[in-house]
Design a protein around this nucleic acid. Structure first.
Lengths: 216, 216
DNA sequence: TGTACATCAGTGAACGCGCGTTCACTGATGTAC
DNA sequence: TGTACATCAGTGAACGCGCGTTCACTGATGTAC
């Protein structure tokens, strides 16, 4: 068994199990037995459980940031102030394409769950790691996004950004539960792509049309 | 020390610590030493850690559901189809008032974090407990909400409901982090009430105006 | 070509630790007669 | 009023268990001369 194989098997198992149960709830024993490798292999290859968690995120975020940067560069050729819709589409497409080699958006969903966990669970080291390694990409994107919507004041802009992030992460990471409920109540089969098709216009409505519901 | 005192002290400490760190990351030893009670008191009064988690939610959800039901009953006197805005306002006000005796919406935020954890962390027993005990209240509210927006087809309605839930739970439960970022970037002090004031119109925009961002 | 050594992925077993839970016990209060 | 018993909140110490990590070791491959 070549080295890369063991490392990849551990990352595959860890990614799936972390997304499913969370970090604290997933033991190294579960990960290594799922991956079919020796328990000590995690500490041998990654050093510690914390560094394994970081590695799982790195494997996802690094190619995503690289591709997003390329796409943004292309957009900047046409205009130094790309439109809001184009920016969001670029982000969604890049994130979706990351999972292109797996079935039915399963990996996108997994990634959303992991992102949600990164925000929710108290993994200080992970937040520090992500900010340190991917903060620049995040900054670049949000600055472009803000330039694309100059009518919205900076404070409202940032809040709406988080509202969008929350709606996205929460619904896509709870996709399985929601899909089960919709199946039961409407006998309606749904896919994560259909959900995304409903999500994007909803986010737009939120981002651009922030009315007070009591007025209407 | 009277019985109720010990029980309340445990619930107070558990609520704060669970919201801060999550369920698996909070040990009974941390809870009992924070509460200043004996380690064995949790199992004596609640039976197990799982039942303690359920009790924390029950203490929050029971009065909230009772008050929301009262408010809905009052709304139904005027009309058997209350307007969307009134329904959402009733929910927000009831949730906010739950924390009336603590400082600056701290308890609302804590509750949002707990709700987020209930969805995110794999606590099957908790989801079953909440559905079994509070499912009827949830059903009543969403049915009224759907009646209030007959123009939105049922499937879109449900998805938008989750988008709203996601935006709310995510942003209000990450309030501390977001507030810290806004403080640093804009030197802007913010409160959870200000956040809610920005949130409500944003949710409205999302609920009612689901346009496609690429069109604009 | 053959030998000695270095490197490195991977292993099996054990380590100490913190966890949730249990249990025999205490001491205060209430109840029956 | 006094005694015997029941009830129950709370306690201190221990239990077994699963956890992340460590360590001495193996065996295959590469390298130097």
């Amino acid at each position: 068994m070549a080295q890369s194989d063991t490392v990849e098997r551990i990352l595959d198992a860890a990614e799936a199990l972390f997304a499913e149960r969370g970090f604290a709830e997933t033991s190294l024993r579960t990960i290594t037995s799922t991956a079919g490798v020796n328990l000590a292999a995690v500490n041998y290859h990654f050093g510690s459980k914390k560094e394994l968690i970081q590695a799982v995120f790195a494997r996802f975020l690094s190619p995503l940031c690289r591709e997003l940067d390329d796409t943004l560069n292309e957009l900047m050729v046409d205009s130094d102030r790309p439109k809001t819709g184009l920016l969001l589409k670029a982000l969604f497409d890049t994130a979706t394409l990351q999972g292109r080699d797996s079935v039915d958006g399963e990996r996108v969903q997994r990634f959303m769950r992991l992102l949600g966990l990164a925000y929710t669970q108290s993994q200080g080291h992970l937040r520090r790691y992500i900010v340190a390694n991917y903060g620049d990409h995040y900054q670049r994107f949000t600055q472009l996004l803000q330039l694309s919507a100059p009518a919205i004041d900076p404070l409202s802009f940032y809040w709406r950004l988080y509202f969008m992030l929350g709606a996205t992460v929460f619904t896509l990471s709870s996709f399985d539960s929601i899909a089960a409920i919709l199946k039961e109540d409407f006998n309606e089969e749904t896919t994560i792509n259909k959900a995304a098709d409903l999500l994007v216009p909803a986010l737009t409505g939120m981002f651009e049309n922030a009315n007070n519901l009591l007025d209407s």
